[in-house]
């Protein structure tokens, strides 16, 4: 079943096109990852899907309902974790959760039960009476995720969930996200963390300049765009020209990253080797290679 669907969705800020005619289908129960460089339009897309930002053109359906008409009903079953912290600094940690529960009209007693539950889920019980400014960045992030769960959402939408988390906290969050998925919660997340996407997401879309450039399971994306292995070749100005010529002559699939060449689909090339073996390194291909490939290495480095 398709739980989130966008059709020809466009978002413009004046003349800037942040999301460009994007059509996307997300299956119920899957964890869907959006990867893309800064400014790719991930947050803009998510803000439209969560009905906090109007689209310029196009259609969004969540649970089969047109978001323009049923924003309230849809928002009632969404859990949203925004990219930027918008915890309520006028309220305590527990106060934030209780007040948020009230926005969903959850009765007081139930709200308290759930608040304590999510606090313990994210190991924040000790901070329940703290003010928000007394929390560390990572604690705020955990509280923000905890807050997103207060209405027991069917769809959880997370904009860079593990940004600023230490490794323990990150694994804790990943673990909780896996458990929620196992319970049938659909997850849509943006991330810059390839490891996170590979670890959690069933399918990943790579986005740049408001468009989706590639969409598949992490494994298939890697197989399709970079193959099993990557050959990294260090180059310096003296041998660069020569190498470049050879790569082209042999029709190898490669990317020029200035002081390095990355040779892809290396197994298909019969494990090509070039130049001085000391300057070469073979390693397994990762999602990061796909990302860099599709969004342009020069942009990143």
């Amino acid at each position: 079943m398709i739980i989130i669907e966008t059709k020809n969705l466009t978002k413009k800020f004046k003349s800037l096109v942040a999301v460009d005619d994007l059509s996307l289908q997300i299956e119920a129960g899957e964890c869907f990852g959006l990867l893309g460089p800064n400014g790719a339009g991930k947050t803009s897309l998510i803000r439209m899907i969560t009905a906090v930002s109007p689209s310029t053109r196009g259609e969004i359906r969540v649970l089969g309902k047109d978001l323009k008409v049923y924003a309230r009903q849809v928002k009632a079953v969404l859990g949203v974790v925004p990219q930027l912290d918008n915890l309520d600094p006028d309220l305590t940690v527990l106060g934030n959760l209780l007040t948020f529960a009230r926005y969903f009209s959850i009765p007081r007693k139930e709200a308290l039960r759930r608040s304590l539950e999510v606090l313990s889920l994210f190991e924040l019980e000790a901070k329940r009476n703290s003010q928000i400014f007394e929390l560390s960045g990572g604690m705020k992030r955990r509280l923000l995720i905890a807050r997103g769960l207060i209405n027991q959402p069917r769809i959880l939408i997370l904009d860079e969930p593990s940004i600023g988390l230490d490794p323990q906290a990150r694994y804790l969050v990943w673990q909780k996200l896996r458990e929620l998925k196992a319970k049938g919660v659909t997850e849509l997340m943006c991330t810059q963390n390839m490891e996170e996407a590979a670890a959690l997401c069933d399918r990943v879309a790579i986005m740049n300049l408001g468009k989706i450039l590639g969409l598949d399971t992490p494994r298939n994306l890697v197989a399709k765009y970079v193959g099993k292995e990557v050959l990294e070749v260090e180059v310096d100005s003296t041998d660069k020209e020569k190498l470049l010529k050879e790569l082209k002559e042999r029709r190898l699939d490669f990317e020029d990253a200035g002081n390095k060449f990355f040779v892809f689909h290396n197994e298909a090339n019969g494990f090509a080797t070039l130049a001085n073996p000391e300057k070469m390194r073979r390693r397994p291909a990762t999602l990061e290679d796909v990302f860099l490939r599709l969004t342009g290495r020069s942009l990143i480095e």
């Binding site: 928002k75 949203v80 925004p82 918008n86 948020f100 926005y103 969903f104 209405n151």
Partner: peptide
């Protein structure tokens, strides 16, 4: 400054 409204409009409130 507090982005309180941003947080609220992601709930059933418009």
């Amino acid at each position: 400054y507090q982005k309180t409204y941003d947080a609220i409009i992601a709930t059933p409130l418009n």
